[in-house]
Amino acid sequence: MPDRFATMFTCIDGRIQQPLNEWVRKHLDVEYLDTITEPGPEAVLAGTGERCLEVLLEKVQVSQRAHGSATLVIAAHSDCAGNPVSVDEHRDQLRQSLARVAGRLPNTRILAVHADRCGEQCWDPELVAEVPPAATGVRPAA
């Protein structure tokens, strides 16, 4: 039986929503997705101040408390208007985001995924890095 909920922290760009939803449901075997959106979420999580980070993580914790979500997916895409940087920088920011939030969300599996340019349709998202529950370091995707 699939887990019921996962939480996603993703870009506001509507083009990434459906491909990301499909990827998460397929790869994580979940039914429902609680979604938190920000322009350039990986840059926000990697570089925002402590108070703003606490506010964002409280949203994740609402999903955890209310729906039992034990997985957080942080998603980025290449042609992001809110974070117009290179693919390598998106990936670096995703890894920084994971490292920054891992210790603040105990017992949470955290994945970073990246989709190529969206254009008319996003390419399939790919796993960049993952932090298993209760881990202290970021593990690159295999």
Rank of each mutant, 00 (worst) to 15 (best):
P125A: 09
E126L: 11
A115S: 15
L111V: 13
V131E: 01
P125G: 09
A134C: 14
V131T: 10
A102I: 00
C122P: 07
L127K: 07
W123I: 12
H114A: 02
C122I: 05
R117P: 09
P106V: 04
G103I: 00
A115Y: 01
V101F: 01
I110R: 03
P125E: 09
V138T: 02
V131W: 01
I110S: 07
L111G: 05
T108C: 12
D124V: 12
I110V: 11
A115M: 03
D124A: 13
V138F: 02
P106T: 05
A99Q: 11
T108D: 02
H114N: 03
A129G: 06
E130C: 12
L105T: 05
D124C: 11
P106W: 07
V101W: 02
A135H: 13
R104G: 01
A102V: 08
E126G: 08
A129T: 05
V113M: 06
V128N: 01
T136G: 13
P133C: 03
L127N: 05
A129R: 03
T136A: 13
A135I: 09
G137P: 10
W123R: 14
G119E: 13
A134R: 14
A99V: 05
H114G: 01
A135G: 11
P125K: 04
P132K: 09
G119L: 10
R117S: 15
E120L: 13
G137M: 12
N107V: 11
D116L: 11
R117Q: 14
E126V: 14
D124W: 10
E130M: 12
Q121I: 12
A102L: 00
P125M: 05
Q121T: 15
A102N: 05
L127T: 08
G119M: 06
R104I: 05
A134F: 14
E120Q: 15
A112V: 02
V131R: 00
P132M: 10
D124Y: 10
G103E: 01
L127E: 12
E126S: 11
V138N: 00
L111M: 14
G103F: 03
P106I: 04
R104N: 03
C122W: 01
T136L: 12
T136R: 15
T108V: 12
W123A: 15
R104W: 02
P132I: 07
G119R: 09
R117N: 12
V113E: 08
A115Q: 05
W123N: 15
A135P: 08
G103L: 01
V138L: 00
A135E: 13
L105S: 04
G119P: 06
A115G: 07
A102P: 07
V113G: 03
C118G: 07
D124S: 14
A129F: 01
G103S: 04
V128D: 04
G137I: 14
D116M: 08
V113Y: 01
W123K: 15
R109S: 11
V101N: 06
P132F: 00
R117E: 15
P132R: 06
L105P: 07
V101K: 07
A112L: 00
R109A: 12
E120C: 11
A102H: 07
P106Y: 09
P133Q: 08
L111Y: 02
P132Y: 06
V131G: 08
A135C: 12
T108S: 10
H114M: 11
D116Q: 11
H114C: 01
Q121C: 12
T136S: 14
D116G: 14
T108I: 07
R109M: 09
E126P: 02
E126M: 11
